[in-house]
């Protein structure tokens, strides 16, 4: 019954479905230019270009990401659009994109005007980043500044950058805590089996998760340095995924007095519902389980309900 036709390759698009920050599409002030999509060096990969948007008058930078699931298309009004992607245009801190240029210039160790540093013959549009309001006002987060007359000079500072990135991480942790994003099922060091309390583990999970997110916008070297700065041990092998909960169950240490008990009732602890079931799982689920004892019932000690 199902179609057996092969998927034909999709030719180039001329239409895009986008969810954009209102600020990106507000009508420009008089004489300001329209927003433009530009390609710039992606700071995490170094060489590859990614797509960004500069708002009207180059005042604000935006990142463009695509939500893409296989086998999706749109109905838009009385039309079909084959490309089922949804593009997100979200405000971006231009400093992430300026940082690689500052670091490179910083190798020379001298103070330089930033507009002599941010130049790239492969990506000439990068100079436009300096027009962003936030670029000029936030350079001091990553560089030492000297003013001579009306001219400003900058020199990259790893120390300042680390502090800045740390603030970014903590800011992100704050948002993560408020969201119901599950941060706990990630990679875990195999050599790192220290007995810890739940709250501490949670904190580390959040930190690592936020660090991972920030690392999307910085070089691998900076990412490693930031990990150190956050006093998080490097993971021996990021390939070996191990559910942290396994280790945790072994440590049934009682909570110490003074610990915030209320946290354990918070939504942070409620697990997300299981993902969609595979066909096989569905078949299993359909099996009449009445009268069958669950496997775990045989193994879990009586009277000790697991906290999940």
């Amino acid at each position: 019954m199902t179609t057996k036709k092969k998927r034909t390759p999709h030719s180039q698009n001329d239409r895009w479905v986008v969810v954009a920050a209102d600020s990106a599409v507000e009508t420009p002030k008089k004489d300001d230019s329209d927003p433009t999509f530009i390609r710039l060096r992606n700071p995490s990969t170094g060489n590859a270009a990614s797509l960004y948007l500069l708002g009207s008058g180059d005042v604000q930078l935006y990142e463009v990401k695509a939500f893409k699931e296989d086998f999706h298309s749109w109905f838009i009004g009385q039309t079909v659009q084959r490309d089922g992607r949804l593009l997100y245009v979200t405000p971006m801190d231009p400093l992430y994109l300026l940082l690689p240029y500052l670091i490179k210039a910083g190798e020379e160790g001298k103070f330089q005007p930033v507009d002599q540093v941010v130049m790239d013959e492969d990506f000439p549009a990068c100079t436009r980043l300096l027009s962003c309001t936030r670029s000029q006002t936030s350079l001091h987060h990553v560089a030492e500044e000297k003013e001579v007359g009306s001219q400003k000079f900058q020199r990259y500072s790893q120390e300042r950058t680390m502090e800045w990135l740390k603030k970014k991480v903590h800011r992100t942790v704050k948002t993560l805590r408020k969201s119901n994003i599950s941060v706990g099922e990630g990679v875990k060091s195999t050599t790192y089996v220290r007995v810890k309390q739940e709250s501490e583990t949670q904190e580390e999970d959040y930190l690592r998760y936020a660090h991972g997110l920030i690392s999307e916008y910085i070089s691998e070297d900076l990412s490693k340095a930031l990990l150190k700065h956050l006093q998080l041990p490097e993971l021996s092998s990021p390939k070996e995924v191990e559910p942290p909960s396994k280790k945790r169950k072994l440590t049934d240490k009682p909570l110490e007095a003074g610990e915030d008990y209320t946290k354990f009732n918070s939504s942070d602890f409620s697990r997300k519902p299981p993902k969609k079931m595979s066909a096989a799982q569905k078949t299993l689920a359909k099996v009449d389980k009445t009268g069958m004892k669950s496997m775990s019932a045989f193994f879990s000690p009586k009277g000790k309900a697991e906290k999940k």
């Binding site: 999509f37 948007l53 009207s56 999706h72 109905f75 838009i76 009385q78 039309t79 079909v80 089922g84």
Partner: peptide, 29 residues
């Protein structure tokens, strides 16, 4: 660069938008 013409917003339609769980090999009406 690709310029985004913002003055077009005023003439834009407000259609209903549906995301379907299949790929339809068609772009058009």
């Amino acid at each position: 660069v690709t310029t985004l013409q913002l003055d077009s917003v005023s003439q834009a339609e407000c259609p209903s938008v549906h995301l379907l769980p299949c790929e339809i090999e068609h772009d058009g009406p």
